[in-house]
Design a protein around this nucleic acid. Structure first.
Length: 576
DNA sequence: GCCGTTTTCGGCCCGACTGTTTTCAGTCG
């Protein structure tokens, strides 16, 4: 039996939810949540760690008891404690936690006093006016609950892709900057950390003294705001028409850095930094670092970190996954930047499913300042996209040569995105692959193979000396399609042995290889190709999102092959 | 349930807003 980390994480989260509904010690609840978080950040499989006799208690947040429970899950596939809790508390109560106004205490009251078990029960109880008879509930609560029930059914509170959120973030930032009295505006939160998906936008502002109220008034009047969730002097929240929630906080200028740090998070990172403050007898909040009555830091983020003995930590690293220790020991990675990218190694043209011609793509890449662009159209298996046979590909190679003659200032590389077939063989014969500059091998079909078959298949493809880059290794589509069932640790190990480069595909809904595995790959010396997988000239500009994911994966210029000049980059590809 | 040169008990990050209160609990981030 195989238990993915995500399943262990979900079980612990469920235990935490159920314990909370039971009114258990909140710190005990927190321990389960923390363990769930730590597990989800693992870049190796917990199951493998346990079976290999690894010591889970070495990880912060996992003690003897929880290590035992993880072992139980790995060995039996279930957790007795969770089953017992489910027997005591109706599992359907968990769905009530999705309603914004309801937390564990209120749900417990609804359950105990009114016998509410499901969303449907709750709706009935509200409509019958029974909810407002309870202590702590009133007419307004009933109203809000009813609205929220309608909403969870429609939108489901899904997190949005960061690329979809960007236009809102930019527009709001500009709108607020244009308001009279406003001095500084920054989008903080998971947006600033560059997470793949965004739950809500956190915006921070400073303004002239006395201007707070008019700024807040302007904020809730933002033209795209659908309704106001909260409207205070220093904190307000609105929901945009798209369903995206936006919070605005206004702080004094001398607190800007502390607040920016605080609202950038992550929560786990902040807690760890605050603990360092406590060690020094400081209190850290969004207004500054305080030594008794005195504020000793807070104007900039650098001040805040310095106050607790840390070098500045890049927002993308702030997940309490080792960055604090790294900053203490001054061994922070010099994260890769967009302007270090010298070329793009994955692009499609109108020959298959792209929208632009070879020439247009070449000129667009040159205009981005690139030195090279690999043309990697699809192979024959991808018939829907006009995938190429050997003969087609040879003709395409000639056209690429012709464009290289024609265009100055950029080199087009002759490549292919060659499909990995069901059995792990490649979609085109070696006789043509050997004449290319670059071969990317990718999984597009047969995504539902068993874990065992999937691993076998991809490893077999990687055995081919022509497999130089493994394209979008998990094949995930964020919010749309689960990753294929595969042991990435094994794939990374195989890449190291064979000299295969792993792709970090920058498409906003792929970001594949995911950042935690990028980190693992780099630690093992496996190189990454940071590619846009463009299907148009606009697509070439999506490199930025890939760089952000790479930064979240602690990657430096040295880890990414397309930061090198053409000759050096080619020399890093597997020989064949 | 975790954790530890303030160690094996007794702490555990911190504050704003809302609704229902009449001084505060619950929720959220």
């Amino acid at each position: 039996m195989t238990i993915p980390n995500t399943e262990i994480r979900d079980m612990f989260d469920q235990v935490a939810d159920l314990l909370e509904l039971k009114g258990e010690n909140p710190f005990r609840v927190r321990a389960y949540r923390e363990a769930a978080r730590v597990i989800s950040g693992f870049s190796e499989q917990v199951e493998k760690l346990v079976k290999g006799g690894g010591d889970l208690t070495a990880y912060r947040g996992i003690g003897k008891d929880l290590a035992g429970k993880i072992q139980e899950i790995v060995e039996t596939g279930s957790l007795k404690q969770l089953e017992e809790l489910k027997a005591q508390i109706p599992e359907s109560l968990l769905e009530l936690l999705q309603i914004p106004e309801l937390g564990p205490k209120k749900i417990a009251a609804l359950h105990k006093e009114l016998g509410v078990k499901t969303l449907a029960d709750l709706k009935q109880a509200v409509e019958a006016g029974r909810v407002s008879t309870l202590k702590g509930f009133g007419k307004k609560s009933e109203q809000k609950i009813l609205e929220s029930i309608g909403r969870t059914k429609k939108a489901g509170g899904k997190r949005m892709l960061i690329s979809d959120v960007e236009p809102y973030a930019t527009a709001l930032e500009q709108y607020l900057k244009d308001q009279p009295g406003v001095k500084q505006v920054a989008v903080a939160g998971s947006y600033r950390r560059g997470k793949e998906t965004i739950g809500d936008l956190d915006i921070l502002a400073t303004c002239g003294e006395g201007d707070e109220e008019q700024v807040m008034d302007a904020f809730v009047r933002f033209e795209d705001a659908r309704d106001t969730i909260a409207h205070g002097k220093t904190k307000s929240s609105v929901r945009l028409r798209s369903g995206l929630q936006v919070d605005l906080r206004i702080v004094p200028e001398e607190s800007y850095g502390a607040a920016l740090h605080y609202f950038t998070g992550s929560k786990a990172h902040n807690i760890a930094v605050r603990k360092l403050g406590i060690d020094r007898k400081y209190k850290i909040n969004e207004y500054g670092v305080h030594d008794g009555e005195n504020r000793i830091a807070g104007r900039t983020e650098e001040d805040v970190y310095a106050a607790v003995g840390l070098a500045f930590i890049e927002p993308e690293l702030r997940e309490n996954m080792g960055e604090i220790e790294a900053a203490q020991e001054n061994r922070q990675p010099g994260l890769i930047t967009l302007n270090e990218i010298r070329g793009d190694l994955h692009a499609h043209t109108s020959r298959t499913d792209g929208r632009n011609t070879l020439l247009e793509m070449a000129e667009a890449a040159r205009d981005l300042g690139y030195e090279y662009l690999a043309i990697t159209d699809h192979s024959q298996k991808v018939a829907m996209a006009g995938g190429m046979t050997e003969k087609d590909l040879r003709e395409h190679m000639q056209r690429i040569d012709a464009v290289n003659e024609q265009v100055e200032g950029i080199t087009l590389l002759k490549g292919i995105e060659c499909d990995i077939l069901a059995e792990g063989t490649l979609d085109l014969p070696d006789t043509v692959l050997k004449d290319l500059d670059l071969v990317i091998c990718s999984v597009h079909y047969y995504q539902r193979l068993s874990r065992e078959d999937q691993i076998k298949r991809v490893l077999r493809a990687m055995d081919s000396p022509y497999c130089q880059i493994l394209g979008h290794p998990t094949a995930r589509l964020i919010n749309t399609r689960e990753p294929i069932d595969i042991d990435l640790e094994k794939i990374i190990e195989a890449a190291r042995e064979r000299g295969v480069v792993l792709e970090l595909n920058a498409q906003p809904d792929r970001l594949d290889l995911p950042h935690n595995y990028c980190k693992m790959a780099a630690e093992l010396g496996v190189k990454i190709a940071l590619n846009t997988d463009s299907h148009s000239i606009e697509g070439l500009k999506r490199m930025k999102g890939g760089v952000t994911e790479a930064r979240r994966g602690w990657l430096t210029k040295a880890d990414v092959i397309n930061t090198r000049p053409l000759g050096d980059m080619l020399a890093m590809l597997r020989k064949r």
